[in-house]
Nucleic acid binder design. Sequence first.
DNA 1: TAGATTGTTAATCGATTAACAATC
DNA 2: TAGATTGTTAATCGATTAACAATC
Lengths: 210, 210
Amino acid sequence: MADKPVPDIVVGRLPVYLRILNYLIDEGRYITSSQELGDRLGISSAQIRKDLSHFGEFGKQGTGYDVKYLRDQLQNILHINRRWPVVLVGAGDLGHALAHYRRFQDAGFDIVGVFDNDPEKIGQQFGRYVIQDVATMPGIIEEQNIKMGIIAVPPAAAIEVAKAMIKAGIVSILNYAPVTLMVPLGVRVQYIDPVAHLQHMAYYQNVDED
Amino acid sequence: MADKPVPDIVVGRLPVYLRILNYLIDEGRYITSSQELGDRLGISSAQIRKDLSHFGEFGKQGTGYDVKYLRDQLQNILHINRRWPVVLVGAGDLGHALAHYRRFQDAGFDIVGVFDNDPEKIGQQFGRYVIQDVATMPGIIEEQNIKMGIIAVPPAAAIEVAKAMIKAGIVSILNYAPVTLMVPLGVRVQYIDPVAHLQHMAYYQNVDED
DNA sequence: TAGATTGTTAATCGATTAACAATC
DNA sequence: TAGATTGTTAATCGATTAACAATC
């Protein structure tokens, strides 16, 4: 047996395909093609067909893909045909925006608790949430069998927070702190660092012409 | 001449190297090695040496790299040895967090204006900022020769906002809206989509064991 | 000098693209 | 049937890694 695992880079594109499919559904479309999907994403149709082929056959020759069917299949593949509870650590400005970010809800990710370690903040109302002591987080993760966590704390605290999350059972971490987390096998981390993106783009700024 | 351009994926790693170098400086370190940098990032030392070799020779055999020197060189390469003014569109929760995100300041990116199209919001205080009419944005971009913009508006509005930015002279866009922007040659877009990251990681969740 | 680490070359690995038979 | 588009194979392209001479 031992199927070769699907390349991670391919998995990472599925959410993007899913997004386009949802837009197509909103537009009332029933059928699409790898060509159309590629055009809307700025990638080749061949790549889309190749990517999908890792998971099965979803289209019909001469016709294309049934939009809703493909959407459902991608949701199954990604395990997002259900809701996922998520813990959030860090009750700052960023945490506030994340806690109330509509798209998490819409996509099936429910932030079930917001935690911080600042005694001034613990117990305070935080939009829809009440800020809880991060010390109580492990118990909640274990009781509710939560697998996903978001870190929105300063870099110095991020490593400890990640450790506590992992120890309690979290295996997927979305990390907004600009630190590389060393995690055991089986735990995934995705990083979001807007500063790195701006620095990356600054490289291409034509500084001579200024 | 026509030097081959440095691969974009290599450029994208420079900000990460820079981050580690800054941490090393904070720790009072003077010298480091590709081995140490790789260990702290979970990548191979060969990759670091190869990446740096695209830009020049920064180390000394037998010794390694002077931390501050390498840091300064990377800053020069990335054109971040100066401050960059940035416009921000979208005065929602996310915009609020971005407008006050310290790391932008620290890294030399100054948000010089926050814009929205909601008449209810225009003119309102927004933390340190006053929300301005997005219609006035192009004039400000042109007057101040601003090259970078951040989009934090709903998907439906993002395409128009990007168009206006680009027309006014923006060439680097950090886009938080979950839409692919079609941009002319010479304009760069970086996407941030936390939902896509969660969906990506959901793939690896072992759903059977639930 | 002996030890360490760079910068670079060549080998390997993996991802993307082109092309087309299959078939709806 | 003619036209269109898939799924897949093979070719191409590009990125990573291993290895080592150069040298501090």
